[in-house]
Write a protein that binds this DNA or RNA. Structure first.
Lengths: 214, 214
DNA sequence: CGCGTAGTTGACCATCATCAACATACGTGG
DNA sequence: CCACGTATGTTGATGATGGTCAACTACGCG
Protein backbone atom coordinates (compact mmCIF):
# COMPACT_ATOMS: atom_id res chain seq x y z
CA UNK A 1 0.00 0.00 0.00
CA UNK A 2 1.70 3.15 -1.19
CA UNK A 3 0.25 6.61 -0.84
CA UNK A 4 2.68 7.54 -3.53
CA UNK A 5 0.49 10.20 -5.01
CA UNK A 6 -0.51 12.39 -2.12
CA UNK A 7 2.20 11.68 0.42
CA UNK A 8 5.01 10.85 -1.96
CA UNK A 9 6.74 14.07 -0.99
CA UNK A 10 7.22 13.07 2.65
CA UNK A 11 10.34 11.67 4.23
CA UNK A 12 10.32 7.97 5.05
CA UNK A 13 9.71 8.26 8.77
CA UNK A 14 6.90 10.75 8.41
CA UNK A 15 5.34 8.67 5.72
CA UNK A 16 5.43 5.76 8.10
CA UNK A 17 3.59 7.75 10.74
CA UNK A 18 0.88 8.63 8.27
CA UNK A 19 0.39 5.20 6.84
CA UNK A 20 -0.30 3.80 10.27
CA UNK A 21 -3.40 6.04 10.39
CA UNK A 22 -4.70 5.15 6.96
CA UNK A 23 -7.26 2.43 6.35
CA UNK A 24 -7.88 0.69 3.09
CA UNK A 25 -11.41 -0.57 2.57
CA UNK A 26 -13.20 -2.41 -0.20
CA UNK A 27 -16.79 -1.56 -1.08
CA UNK A 28 -19.33 -3.30 -3.31
CA UNK A 29 -21.22 -1.44 -6.02
CA UNK A 30 -24.11 0.61 -4.69
CA UNK A 31 -22.67 1.22 -1.24
CA UNK A 32 -22.68 4.79 0.03
CA UNK A 33 -19.30 5.94 1.38
CA UNK A 34 -20.64 9.18 2.80
CA UNK A 35 -23.67 11.40 2.28
CA UNK A 36 -24.30 15.11 1.86
CA UNK A 37 -23.92 17.01 5.09
CA UNK A 38 -22.43 14.12 7.00
CA UNK A 39 -19.92 15.09 9.69
CA UNK A 40 -16.83 12.98 9.43
CA UNK A 41 -13.25 14.08 9.13
CA UNK A 42 -11.89 11.81 6.48
CA UNK A 43 -10.38 12.43 3.08
CA UNK A 44 -10.40 9.61 0.53
CA UNK A 45 -8.36 8.42 -2.39
CA UNK A 46 -9.59 5.83 -4.82
CA UNK A 47 -7.34 2.87 -5.60
CA UNK A 48 -9.56 0.94 -7.98
CA UNK A 49 -13.12 0.98 -9.27
CA UNK A 50 -15.38 3.97 -9.76
CA UNK A 51 -17.15 6.29 -7.33
CA UNK A 52 -19.84 8.81 -8.22
CA UNK A 53 -20.35 12.10 -6.42
CA UNK A 54 -24.02 13.02 -6.23
CA UNK A 55 -25.83 16.19 -5.46
CA UNK A 56 -29.53 16.52 -4.79
CA UNK A 57 -31.90 19.16 -6.06
CA UNK A 58 -34.63 20.56 -3.83
CA UNK A 59 -37.22 18.44 -5.67
CA UNK A 60 -35.38 15.23 -4.84
CA UNK A 61 -33.88 14.74 -8.26
CA UNK A 62 -30.24 13.82 -8.22
CA UNK A 63 -27.42 14.64 -10.54
CA UNK A 64 -23.99 13.05 -10.78
CA UNK A 65 -21.56 15.91 -10.42
CA UNK A 66 -18.32 14.07 -10.81
CA UNK A 67 -16.90 10.64 -11.42
CA UNK A 68 -13.89 9.66 -9.32
CA UNK A 69 -11.29 7.59 -11.10
CA UNK A 70 -8.48 5.56 -9.52
CA UNK A 71 -5.68 7.64 -7.95
CA UNK A 72 -7.99 10.61 -7.51
CA UNK A 73 -8.84 12.25 -4.20
CA UNK A 74 -12.36 12.98 -3.00
CA UNK A 75 -13.96 14.41 0.08
CA UNK A 76 -11.34 17.17 0.29
CA UNK A 77 -14.06 19.41 1.76
CA UNK A 78 -13.40 17.69 5.07
CA UNK A 79 -10.17 19.68 5.31
CA UNK A 80 -11.83 23.09 5.41
CA UNK A 81 -15.40 22.51 6.53
CA UNK A 82 -16.88 19.82 8.65
CA UNK A 83 -19.45 18.36 6.28
CA UNK A 84 -19.34 16.83 2.83
CA UNK A 85 -20.84 18.61 -0.15
CA UNK A 86 -21.92 15.46 -1.96
CA UNK A 87 -22.98 11.93 -1.46
CA UNK A 88 -20.30 9.48 -2.57
CA UNK A 89 -21.62 6.17 -3.88
CA UNK A 90 -19.69 3.25 -5.34
CA UNK A 91 -20.44 2.60 -9.00
CA UNK A 92 -18.10 -0.32 -9.51
CA UNK A 93 -16.46 -2.39 -6.77
CA UNK A 94 -13.94 0.01 -5.30
CA UNK A 95 -10.93 0.00 -3.01
CA UNK A 96 -10.69 3.23 -1.07
CA UNK A 97 -8.06 4.75 1.22
CA UNK A 98 -9.43 6.59 4.21
CA UNK A 99 -7.21 9.33 5.57
CA UNK A 100 -8.27 11.08 8.76
CA UNK A 101 -7.89 14.84 8.35
CA UNK A 102 -5.94 14.95 11.61
CA UNK A 103 -3.19 12.99 9.87
CA UNK A 104 -2.96 15.72 7.24
CA UNK A 105 -3.59 18.79 9.36
CA UNK A 106 -0.47 18.53 11.48
CA UNK A 107 1.85 17.88 8.59
CA UNK A 108 0.48 20.40 6.20
CA UNK A 109 1.50 23.24 8.52
CA UNK A 110 5.09 22.15 8.49
CA UNK A 111 5.48 20.73 5.01
CA UNK A 112 5.06 23.16 2.13
CA UNK A 113 5.39 20.36 -0.39
CA UNK A 114 2.30 18.72 1.05
CA UNK A 115 0.47 22.00 0.68
CA UNK A 116 1.38 22.07 -2.95
CA UNK A 117 0.09 18.56 -3.39
CA UNK A 118 -3.20 19.47 -1.76
CA UNK A 119 -3.70 22.53 -3.91
CA UNK A 120 -2.91 20.47 -6.95
CA UNK A 121 -5.58 17.95 -5.92
CA UNK A 122 -8.03 20.71 -5.44
CA UNK A 123 -7.24 22.10 -8.82
CA UNK A 124 -7.76 18.70 -10.46
CA UNK A 125 -11.18 18.41 -8.86
CA UNK A 126 -12.13 21.85 -10.13
CA UNK A 127 -10.86 21.10 -13.59
CA UNK A 128 -12.92 17.90 -13.63
CA UNK A 129 -16.00 19.79 -12.55
CA UNK A 130 -15.54 22.25 -15.41
CA UNK A 131 -15.04 19.52 -17.97
CA UNK A 132 -18.11 17.76 -16.66
CA UNK A 133 -20.11 20.92 -17.21
CA UNK A 134 -18.88 21.78 -20.67
CA UNK A 135 -18.56 18.32 -22.15
CA UNK A 136 -21.35 16.39 -20.50
CA UNK A 137 -24.02 19.06 -20.12
CA UNK A 138 -23.72 20.76 -23.48
CA UNK A 139 -24.92 19.58 -26.88
CA UNK A 140 -27.27 16.80 -27.94
CA UNK A 141 -27.58 13.46 -26.21
CA UNK A 142 -25.39 11.37 -28.55
CA UNK A 143 -22.67 14.01 -28.42
CA UNK A 144 -22.65 13.98 -24.64
CA UNK A 145 -22.58 10.22 -24.46
CA UNK A 146 -19.73 10.01 -26.96
CA UNK A 147 -17.73 12.51 -24.93
CA UNK A 148 -18.32 10.51 -21.76
CA UNK A 149 -17.08 7.33 -23.39
CA UNK A 150 -13.98 9.09 -24.69
CA UNK A 151 -13.18 10.13 -21.15
CA UNK A 152 -13.57 6.58 -19.88
CA UNK A 153 -11.85 4.35 -22.47
CA UNK A 154 -8.72 2.65 -21.28
CA UNK A 155 -5.64 1.84 -23.35
CA UNK A 156 -7.33 -1.27 -24.76
CA UNK A 157 -10.24 0.69 -26.14
CA UNK A 158 -12.60 -0.65 -23.49
CA UNK A 159 -14.87 1.53 -21.36
CA UNK A 160 -17.28 0.83 -18.51
CA UNK A 161 -20.93 1.03 -19.52
CA UNK A 162 -22.89 2.17 -16.50
CA UNK A 163 -26.54 1.52 -15.80
CA UNK A 164 -29.01 3.56 -17.81
CA UNK A 165 -30.10 5.33 -14.69
CA UNK A 166 -26.55 6.39 -13.86
CA UNK A 167 -25.92 7.42 -17.44
CA UNK A 168 -29.02 9.54 -17.22
CA UNK A 169 -27.89 11.26 -14.04
CA UNK A 170 -24.49 11.95 -15.60
CA UNK A 171 -25.67 13.19 -18.96
CA UNK A 172 -28.82 15.04 -17.92
CA UNK A 173 -31.33 12.78 -19.63
CA UNK A 174 -33.89 10.15 -18.67
CA UNK A 175 -32.85 6.51 -18.35
CA UNK A 176 -35.15 5.70 -21.26
CA UNK A 177 -33.39 8.14 -23.50
CA UNK A 178 -30.00 6.88 -22.35
CA UNK A 179 -31.12 3.40 -23.34
CA UNK A 180 -32.08 4.58 -26.81
CA UNK A 181 -28.77 6.32 -27.29
CA UNK A 182 -26.87 3.20 -26.24
CA UNK A 183 -28.73 0.99 -28.71
CA UNK A 184 -28.18 3.57 -31.44
CA UNK A 185 -24.47 3.49 -30.70
CA UNK A 186 -24.51 -0.26 -30.92
CA UNK A 187 -26.34 -0.20 -34.21
CA UNK A 188 -24.00 2.24 -35.90
CA UNK A 189 -20.91 0.48 -34.59
CA UNK A 190 -19.69 3.14 -32.17
CA UNK A 191 -19.62 0.53 -29.41
CA UNK A 192 -19.78 -3.24 -29.45
CA UNK A 193 -19.05 -6.33 -27.43
CA UNK A 194 -21.29 -5.28 -24.60
CA UNK A 195 -20.65 -7.65 -21.71
CA UNK A 196 -20.47 -7.39 -17.93
CA UNK A 197 -20.88 -3.63 -17.90
CA UNK A 198 -18.05 -2.97 -20.35
CA UNK A 199 -17.97 -2.17 -24.02
CA UNK A 200 -15.45 -1.87 -26.79
CA UNK A 201 -15.28 1.59 -28.32
CA UNK A 202 -14.83 2.57 -31.93
CA UNK A 203 -12.74 5.65 -31.34
CA UNK A 204 -13.01 7.08 -34.82
CA UNK A 205 -16.77 6.83 -34.70
CA UNK A 206 -16.88 8.34 -31.22
CA UNK A 207 -14.82 11.32 -32.32
CA UNK A 208 -17.27 11.98 -35.11
CA UNK A 209 -20.21 11.75 -32.74
CA UNK A 210 -18.55 13.84 -30.02
CA UNK A 211 -18.02 16.61 -32.54
CA UNK A 212 -21.70 16.62 -33.46
CA UNK A 213 -21.73 14.44 -36.58
CA UNK A 214 -24.96 12.47 -36.85
CA UNK B 1 -8.08 49.21 -0.18
CA UNK B 2 -8.27 46.30 2.19
CA UNK B 3 -7.52 42.75 1.23
CA UNK B 4 -9.51 41.83 4.22
CA UNK B 5 -10.73 38.61 2.81
CA UNK B 6 -7.66 36.80 1.58
CA UNK B 7 -4.90 38.46 3.55
CA UNK B 8 -6.83 39.44 6.63
CA UNK B 9 -4.96 36.85 8.62
CA UNK B 10 -1.58 38.50 8.15
CA UNK B 11 0.20 40.75 10.59
CA UNK B 12 0.25 44.45 9.81
CA UNK B 13 3.79 44.67 8.46
CA UNK B 14 3.46 41.62 6.26
CA UNK B 15 0.15 42.89 4.97
CA UNK B 16 1.88 46.09 4.07
CA UNK B 17 4.50 44.23 2.07
CA UNK B 18 1.82 42.43 0.12
CA UNK B 19 -0.32 45.42 -0.60
CA UNK B 20 2.56 47.16 -2.26
CA UNK B 21 2.59 44.40 -4.88
CA UNK B 22 -1.14 44.43 -5.54
CA UNK B 23 -2.73 46.44 -8.33
CA UNK B 24 -6.35 47.45 -8.49
CA UNK B 25 -7.73 47.89 -11.98
CA UNK B 26 -11.09 48.85 -13.41
CA UNK B 27 -12.41 47.17 -16.54
CA UNK B 28 -15.35 47.97 -18.79
CA UNK B 29 -17.94 45.36 -19.74
CA UNK B 30 -16.78 43.03 -22.48
CA UNK B 31 -13.06 43.29 -21.73
CA UNK B 32 -11.12 40.05 -21.45
CA UNK B 33 -8.98 39.82 -18.31
CA UNK B 34 -7.20 36.66 -19.38
CA UNK B 35 -7.80 33.84 -21.83
CA UNK B 36 -7.58 30.06 -21.76
CA UNK B 37 -4.01 28.82 -21.77
CA UNK B 38 -2.49 32.24 -21.20
CA UNK B 39 0.76 32.23 -19.20
CA UNK B 40 0.64 34.84 -16.52
CA UNK B 41 1.23 34.45 -12.81
CA UNK B 42 -1.55 36.48 -11.30
CA UNK B 43 -4.43 35.62 -9.02
CA UNK B 44 -7.47 37.91 -8.95
CA UNK B 45 -10.13 38.98 -6.54
CA UNK B 46 -13.23 40.84 -7.62
CA UNK B 47 -14.17 44.02 -5.75
CA UNK B 48 -17.24 45.04 -7.71
CA UNK B 49 -19.11 44.10 -10.86
CA UNK B 50 -19.39 40.66 -12.47
CA UNK B 51 -16.92 38.49 -14.31
CA UNK B 52 -17.74 35.37 -16.30
CA UNK B 53 -15.44 32.37 -16.65
CA UNK B 54 -15.75 30.81 -20.08
CA UNK B 55 -14.70 27.50 -21.48
CA UNK B 56 -14.66 26.56 -25.14
CA UNK B 57 -15.79 23.33 -26.73
CA UNK B 58 -13.85 21.78 -29.61
CA UNK B 59 -16.52 23.02 -32.04
CA UNK B 60 -16.03 26.63 -30.98
CA UNK B 61 -19.16 26.85 -28.88
CA UNK B 62 -18.63 28.48 -25.54
CA UNK B 63 -20.18 27.85 -22.19
CA UNK B 64 -20.12 30.02 -19.08
CA UNK B 65 -18.75 27.79 -16.36
CA UNK B 66 -18.91 30.15 -13.43
CA UNK B 67 -19.92 33.66 -12.49
CA UNK B 68 -17.55 35.54 -10.21
CA UNK B 69 -19.22 37.77 -7.63
CA UNK B 70 -17.59 40.55 -5.60
CA UNK B 71 -15.16 39.36 -2.91
CA UNK B 72 -14.56 36.10 -4.73
CA UNK B 73 -11.21 34.89 -6.01
CA UNK B 74 -10.54 33.69 -9.53
CA UNK B 75 -7.56 32.50 -11.50
CA UNK B 76 -6.34 30.39 -8.58
CA UNK B 77 -4.98 27.93 -11.15
CA UNK B 78 -2.01 30.26 -11.50
CA UNK B 79 -0.79 29.01 -8.12
CA UNK B 80 -0.32 25.41 -9.19
CA UNK B 81 -0.01 25.45 -12.95
CA UNK B 82 1.24 28.10 -15.26
CA UNK B 83 -1.79 28.60 -17.47
CA UNK B 84 -5.41 29.53 -16.89
CA UNK B 85 -8.18 27.03 -17.42
CA UNK B 86 -10.77 29.55 -18.58
CA UNK B 87 -11.18 32.85 -20.29
CA UNK B 88 -12.25 35.56 -17.84
CA UNK B 89 -14.42 38.27 -19.38
CA UNK B 90 -16.06 41.24 -17.67
CA UNK B 91 -19.84 41.12 -17.71
CA UNK B 92 -20.50 44.31 -15.81
CA UNK B 93 -17.99 47.10 -15.15
CA UNK B 94 -15.63 45.52 -12.65
CA UNK B 95 -12.89 46.50 -10.24
CA UNK B 96 -10.33 43.76 -9.92
CA UNK B 97 -7.35 43.19 -7.62
CA UNK B 98 -4.36 41.63 -9.29
CA UNK B 99 -2.09 39.67 -6.99
CA UNK B 100 1.15 38.29 -8.41
CA UNK B 101 1.59 34.67 -7.36
CA UNK B 102 5.09 35.49 -6.14
CA UNK B 103 3.50 37.63 -3.45
CA UNK B 104 1.56 34.63 -2.21
CA UNK B 105 4.12 31.88 -2.76
CA UNK B 106 6.65 33.14 -0.26
CA UNK B 107 4.16 33.77 2.48
CA UNK B 108 2.14 30.66 2.11
CA UNK B 109 5.13 28.53 3.07
CA UNK B 110 5.52 30.33 6.37
CA UNK B 111 1.92 31.18 7.21
CA UNK B 112 -0.40 28.25 7.82
CA UNK B 113 -3.35 30.59 8.21
CA UNK B 114 -2.86 31.80 4.66
CA UNK B 115 -2.85 28.19 3.52
CA UNK B 116 -6.18 27.71 5.18
CA UNK B 117 -7.55 30.76 3.45
CA UNK B 118 -6.39 29.50 0.07
CA UNK B 119 -7.93 26.08 0.57
CA UNK B 120 -11.12 27.71 1.64
CA UNK B 121 -11.13 29.79 -1.57
CA UNK B 122 -10.53 26.72 -3.58
CA UNK B 123 -13.38 24.96 -1.88
CA UNK B 124 -15.72 27.87 -2.58
CA UNK B 125 -14.85 27.73 -6.26
CA UNK B 126 -15.54 24.01 -6.35
CA UNK B 127 -18.80 24.42 -4.51
CA UNK B 128 -19.86 27.09 -7.00
CA UNK B 129 -18.99 24.82 -9.90
CA UNK B 130 -21.16 22.07 -8.44
CA UNK B 131 -24.08 24.39 -7.85
CA UNK B 132 -23.75 25.68 -11.38
CA UNK B 133 -23.98 22.14 -12.67
CA UNK B 134 -26.92 20.99 -10.59
CA UNK B 135 -28.99 24.14 -10.52
CA UNK B 136 -28.30 25.71 -13.88
CA UNK B 137 -27.87 22.67 -16.10
CA UNK B 138 -30.71 20.53 -14.81
CA UNK B 139 -34.43 20.88 -15.40
CA UNK B 140 -36.44 22.91 -17.90
CA UNK B 141 -35.52 26.36 -19.10
CA UNK B 142 -37.81 28.43 -16.80
CA UNK B 143 -36.64 26.44 -13.80
CA UNK B 144 -33.00 27.09 -14.60
CA UNK B 145 -33.58 30.77 -15.18
CA UNK B 146 -35.51 31.13 -11.94
CA UNK B 147 -32.68 29.44 -10.05
CA UNK B 148 -30.15 31.79 -11.62
CA UNK B 149 -32.14 34.83 -10.59
CA UNK B 150 -32.47 33.54 -7.06
CA UNK B 151 -28.70 33.28 -6.87
CA UNK B 152 -28.28 36.84 -8.10
CA UNK B 153 -30.88 38.90 -6.24
CA UNK B 154 -29.51 41.39 -3.74
CA UNK B 155 -31.09 42.43 -0.46
CA UNK B 156 -33.40 44.86 -2.28
CA UNK B 157 -34.87 42.15 -4.47
CA UNK B 158 -33.02 43.42 -7.53
CA UNK B 159 -30.96 41.22 -9.83
CA UNK B 160 -28.80 41.89 -12.88
CA UNK B 161 -30.39 40.79 -16.14
CA UNK B 162 -27.62 39.80 -18.52
CA UNK B 163 -27.75 39.84 -22.28
CA UNK B 164 -29.73 37.05 -23.89
CA UNK B 165 -26.57 35.64 -25.35
CA UNK B 166 -24.90 35.45 -21.94
CA UNK B 167 -28.01 33.98 -20.38
CA UNK B 168 -27.95 31.36 -23.11
CA UNK B 169 -24.33 30.46 -22.41
CA UNK B 170 -25.07 30.19 -18.69
CA UNK B 171 -28.26 28.21 -18.90
CA UNK B 172 -27.47 25.96 -21.86
CA UNK B 173 -30.00 27.38 -24.28
CA UNK B 174 -30.09 29.56 -27.38
CA UNK B 175 -30.36 33.36 -27.03
CA UNK B 176 -33.76 33.19 -28.73
CA UNK B 177 -35.08 30.81 -26.16
CA UNK B 178 -33.59 32.88 -23.35
CA UNK B 179 -35.49 35.83 -24.76
CA UNK B 180 -38.76 33.92 -24.73
CA UNK B 181 -38.22 32.81 -21.17
CA UNK B 182 -37.51 36.38 -20.06
CA UNK B 183 -40.69 37.73 -21.66
CA UNK B 184 -42.69 34.88 -20.11
CA UNK B 185 -41.30 35.84 -16.71
CA UNK B 186 -42.28 39.43 -17.31
CA UNK B 187 -45.78 38.44 -18.34
CA UNK B 188 -46.48 36.28 -15.32
CA UNK B 189 -44.99 38.81 -12.94
CA UNK B 190 -41.90 36.89 -11.84
CA UNK B 191 -39.76 39.88 -12.81
CA UNK B 192 -40.60 43.49 -13.55
CA UNK B 193 -39.15 46.96 -13.79
CA UNK B 194 -36.61 45.97 -16.41
CA UNK B 195 -34.21 48.86 -16.80
CA UNK B 196 -30.49 49.27 -17.38
CA UNK B 197 -29.78 45.58 -17.20
CA UNK B 198 -31.48 45.09 -13.84
CA UNK B 199 -34.84 43.72 -12.83
CA UNK B 200 -36.97 43.48 -9.74
CA UNK B 201 -37.70 39.93 -8.69
CA UNK B 202 -40.90 38.45 -7.32
CA UNK B 203 -39.31 35.99 -4.94
CA UNK B 204 -42.43 33.99 -4.20
CA UNK B 205 -43.05 33.51 -7.90
CA UNK B 206 -39.42 32.61 -8.53
CA UNK B 207 -39.48 29.96 -5.82
CA UNK B 208 -42.47 28.36 -7.47
CA UNK B 209 -40.80 28.40 -10.85
CA UNK B 210 -37.45 27.17 -9.51
CA UNK B 211 -39.21 24.17 -8.01
CA UNK B 212 -40.78 23.28 -11.34
CA UNK B 213 -44.21 24.87 -11.07
CA UNK B 214 -45.45 26.10 -14.41
C1' DC C 1 -30.38 60.19 -40.70
C1' DG C 2 -28.61 55.70 -41.44
C1' DC C 3 -26.24 51.87 -39.73
C1' DG C 4 -25.22 47.97 -36.69
C1' DT C 5 -26.13 45.38 -32.77
C1' DA C 6 -29.21 43.25 -29.57
C1' DG C 7 -33.74 41.76 -28.71
C1' DT C 8 -38.29 39.95 -30.12
C1' DT C 9 -41.51 37.12 -32.45
C1' DG C 10 -43.33 33.52 -35.55
C1' DA C 11 -43.43 29.06 -38.00
C1' DC C 12 -41.66 24.77 -38.29
C1' DC C 13 -39.05 20.79 -37.07
C1' DA C 14 -35.78 17.94 -34.15
C1' DT C 15 -34.96 16.35 -29.77
C1' DC C 16 -36.25 14.54 -25.72
C1' DA C 17 -39.62 13.51 -21.73
C1' DT C 18 -43.41 10.91 -20.43
C1' DC C 19 -46.24 7.01 -19.81
C1' DA C 20 -47.09 2.48 -20.60
C1' DA C 21 -46.22 -2.14 -22.20
C1' DC C 22 -43.18 -5.66 -22.53
C1' DA C 23 -38.70 -8.30 -22.17
C1' DT C 24 -34.84 -9.87 -19.73
C1' DA C 25 -31.96 -10.97 -16.01
C1' DC C 26 -31.31 -12.14 -11.18
C1' DG C 27 -32.09 -13.93 -6.78
C1' DT C 28 -35.22 -16.23 -3.50
C1' DG C 29 -37.83 -19.65 -1.62
C1' DG C 30 -40.70 -23.52 -2.63
C1' DC D 1 -34.67 -27.29 -10.46
C1' DC D 2 -38.43 -24.54 -11.28
C1' DA D 3 -41.66 -20.78 -10.30
C1' DC D 4 -42.06 -16.45 -8.99
C1' DG D 5 -41.13 -11.55 -7.92
C1' DT D 6 -38.38 -7.66 -8.48
C1' DA D 7 -35.16 -4.66 -10.65
C1' DT D 8 -33.36 -3.22 -14.96
C1' DG D 9 -33.46 -2.57 -19.70
C1' DT D 10 -36.01 -2.01 -24.17
C1' DT D 11 -39.39 -0.28 -27.25
C1' DG D 12 -43.40 2.33 -28.91
C1' DA D 13 -46.67 6.18 -29.18
C1' DT D 14 -47.49 10.80 -28.13
C1' DG D 15 -46.79 15.48 -26.75
C1' DA D 16 -43.96 19.11 -24.62
C1' DT D 17 -39.79 21.54 -24.95
C1' DG D 18 -36.49 23.90 -27.17
C1' DG D 19 -33.51 24.60 -31.62
C1' DT D 20 -33.37 26.76 -36.11
C1' DC D 21 -34.09 30.07 -39.55
C1' DA D 22 -35.96 34.21 -40.91
C1' DA D 23 -38.33 38.53 -40.55
C1' DC D 24 -38.91 42.39 -38.03
C1' DT D 25 -38.31 45.92 -34.22
C1' DA D 26 -35.93 48.89 -30.87
C1' DC D 27 -32.05 51.16 -29.45
C1' DG D 28 -27.57 53.48 -29.36
C1' DC D 29 -24.06 55.75 -31.87
C1' DG D 30 -21.56 57.96 -35.47
Amino acid sequence: MRQRSLFGVLSADRLDGILRQVDEVEYAAGVSIYTTGERRSTVFTLRSGYVKLLRFLPDGQQRIVRLVKPSCTFGLEALVGDTYGHAAVVLERAVVCMIPTTAIDGLRRTTPALHDQLMRRWQIALEEADVWLTELSTGKAPQRFARLLRRLVDANGVAPLFSRENLGAMLAMTPEHASRVVTDFRRNGAISDVTAGRCRCNLAQLSRLAAGGD
